Structure formats: structure tokens, C-alpha cells
Simulated scan of single mutants.
Amino acid sequence: MSIDAATYARLREIADQLPRIPGIGQVEIANGEIVMMMSPVRRHELAVMRISRQLNEQLEATHPGFVAHAGADLEDVGLGRLRRPDLMVFPEAILEEDSAAVYPADVLLAVEIVSKSNPENDYDDKVRDYAAMGIPLYLIVDPRDGTGIVHSQPRYSRRESFVFGDTVAVGPWRIDTGGLLTYGK
């Protein structure tokens, strides 16, 4: 569902002015609503770090000048979406710009580590949104059960499932998932 530009602009203004509430990790805009996300747990952040490290080691050879970076907003004004992937691959030079967000045309890969509290967001909503944004690759890592999926274009019609312990192809990169941990029970 896309929203009109004026509604999105209003939502973006509100999202930018929200106070930083303890325990709230990030703010997204989707489906015409502001969505406040909880701060991730340690194993979630460990997965982000380990995947980021592996990607950054390979990017110099495959995509010089690109970086696997956590902590950036992803914005598609035309779709009325503001997302904050756990990790994205994009040109490092974008971080030198003064804009508030990274734009989908610059992103090669979005990565989401599935949360305990809202897994359908990563499996349904973000699959739809990232495909609509034209992001070529979307990696879902699910520490709830030690599985994942690599989605690839066109429009994520190709899906490759894996289990923790596999070395998985994500476009031109290889991710060893053997160091990823499931959430504690």
C-alpha cells in the first residue's frame, strides 16, 4: 500500500520529532503508520556484526567502495516507506552526504535478523517493501529456529532456504552461518 506524498511527509515529520523513549530501538513508517521497534537483544546484534564482518571482507574484491553498514535509514518517498534494515550494502560515499537516509537505488542487499516479537514484519511486510523498492537481494536470518532465506530478484521470485551452519550464497558473497546463535529459550 502506497500513501500520498503529503501524508508521508507528515508522518516523516512526526517520526523525526518523536522523543527517544528508553527501550525503543528505531522508528519506521509503513502502511501509513509510524512503527516503533523495540531495541534488539544481544544475539540479534551479534548476528548483525558477524554478517557485516564477513560481507566487508568480501566487498573490496567484489564491489570496491561499498560497505556493509548497520544503523542507516532506508527511505522510499514514492512508496511512503521508511525502514531501518539491520544491515545494508551500499556505496560508502553515501555516508558522506547530508541526506537523512539511504535510497533504495543505492542498496545491493538488505539484511534483517528476525526479532522474537514481530517476525511477520521481516517475513511479510519487508519482503513486499524491499521487492517493491527494487533492492536486488534480501537476506532473512531467523535466530528463533536457526534458519534463513535469501531472496533475489526479480521481485524475490527466487528463494533459497538455509539452516545455521550452512555457507550460503548471497549474490556474489558467501556467508558462513556457523557462527550465528539461536535465541535462548
Rank of each mutant, 00 (worst) to 15 (best):
L87R: 02
G78K: 10
L87N: 04
L109H: 06
I24G: 05
R53E: 14
Y138Q: 12
Y103D: 00
I149H: 05
L74M: 04
D98P: 01
E57R: 07
V27M: 09
L74Q: 09
Y130R: 09
I140M: 10
P91C: 00
P136N: 13
L82G: 06
G134T: 14
P119R: 04
V48H: 08
P154K: 13
V141W: 07
R84M: 03
D73N: 06
Y138W: 08
V150H: 07
G80R: 06
K126F: 06
V41C: 10
E120F: 13
D106R: 15
V111M: 05
I51W: 01
A131W: 13
F66P: 01
E120Q: 14
G146Q: 10
R144E: 13
F90E: 01
L108C: 10
I140P: 00
I135C: 09
I94K: 09
I51F: 05
V141K: 00
G32H: 09
V48S: 07
Y156F: 15
K126C: 05
S52F: 02
R53N: 12
R42P: 10
N56A: 12
L95M: 12
I24N: 05
P40H: 06
L95I: 00
V141Y: 07
R84I: 06
L55Y: 00
A93Y: 04
E112D: 15
E33L: 14
G78H: 04
G146P: 00
A101W: 08
K116I: 14
A72F: 01
P85F: 02
D129R: 07
Y156A: 01
G134L: 13
H44G: 01
G148E: 15
V127G: 06
E28D: 12
M49Y: 12
P143N: 05
V67H: 02
E96T: 03
M38D: 06
I113H: 03
A132G: 05
S115H: 07
G80Y: 00
R42T: 10
A30D: 08
P64A: 07
E75H: 01
R81T: 08
P85T: 02
E57H: 10
S99D: 02
I24P: 03
A132M: 12
L79M: 12
H69E: 08
G71K: 13
A132P: 01
N118S: 15
L95V: 04
A132Q: 11
G25W: 11
D86Q: 09
S99K: 00
N121P: 05
G78S: 08
E112K: 02
L55N: 10
L82N: 00
D124V: 15
R128V: 14
V141C: 06
I135L: 10
D98M: 06
E120G: 07
I94R: 11
N31E: 15
H44W: 09
D124F: 06
L79N: 06
N31T: 09
V111Y: 06
V35C: 10
Q153P: 14
P64K: 04
A68I: 04
Y123C: 08
R42S: 14
D129Y: 11
L137A: 13
T62D: 15
D106V: 02
S115P: 02
E75G: 01
Q54V: 11
E28T: 04
V107D: 02
Q58F: 10
A100M: 03
M36S: 11
L74H: 02
E96F: 00
D86Y: 09
A101T: 02
V89N: 07
A68E: 07
I113Y: 10
A131Y: 15
V107H: 01
S39A: 15
V111D: 12
Q54L: 10
P64T: 08
D76E: 00
